[in-house]
């Protein structure tokens, strides 16, 4: 892969297709592998629950952008492909946004619903503890009980 690197080929008369250079493909692979190492390293550093999550997501978004731009040729593709991806991501954004609004406003509707839904637990100790502490009716079925003492946390 040394001399005479074509940047485009004639696919059909009047239509050329971009050819990605080997150097760029290699560079992208190296960056992706380095950032995989980085995301592991960052997870070892305690930055706080939400900051760690956002850093991990940011690195993943960066890596995904490189894959889309170079490996999936969006950089040199017709705009329509990027547009499809853009509206897809926008839709996912609305999906996440409305879920977030729901989670942050449940307590305004019903205090009970603001707490996490109690998981039907297989771990018997947790159930026995709750019964011993008088927080749980032994007769009540796990599925219907509103265990508000789960390890819920607001961050």
């Amino acid at each position: 892969m040394s001399h005479a690197e074509p940047h485009a080929i004639e696919f059909e008369h009047g239509h050329t297709h971009h050819v990605t250079s080997m150097r760029l493909l290699n560079t992208i692979l190296v960056i992706l592998l380095i950032f995989t190492g980085l995301t592991v390293a960052v997870s070892r550093v305690h930055l706080g629950e939400s900051l760690n999550l956002w850093v991990a997501v940011a690195i993943a978004v960066f890596k995904a952008s490189l894959v889309c731009a170079v490996f999936m040729h969006l950089l040199h593709d017709k705009a329509i492909s990027s547009l499809v991806l853009f509206f897809c991501v926008l839709t996912i954004g609305f999906f996440f946004l409305f879920t977030l609004i729901d989670m942050d406003s449940r307590h305004m509707v019903d205090p009970v619903r603001a707490a996490p839904i109690a998981a039907p637990t297989i771990v018997e100790e947790a159930r026995a503890e709750a019964i011993a502490a008088g927080e749980l009716d032994p007769a009540a079925h796990t599925d219907e009980s509103h265990d508000e003492h789960g390890d819920a946390g607001e961050h």
């Binding site: 995989t36 995301t39 997870s43 629950e49 991990a56 997501v57 690195i59 993943a60 995904a64 889309c68």
Partner: peptide, 16 residues
């Protein structure tokens, strides 16, 4: 498929 794994890996395996 690679792209989705790029997100799954840190979210599932690297919860600090």
């Amino acid at each position: 498929v690679d792209l989705i794994w790029i997100f799954l890996f840190p979210l599932l395996y690297l919860v600090p």
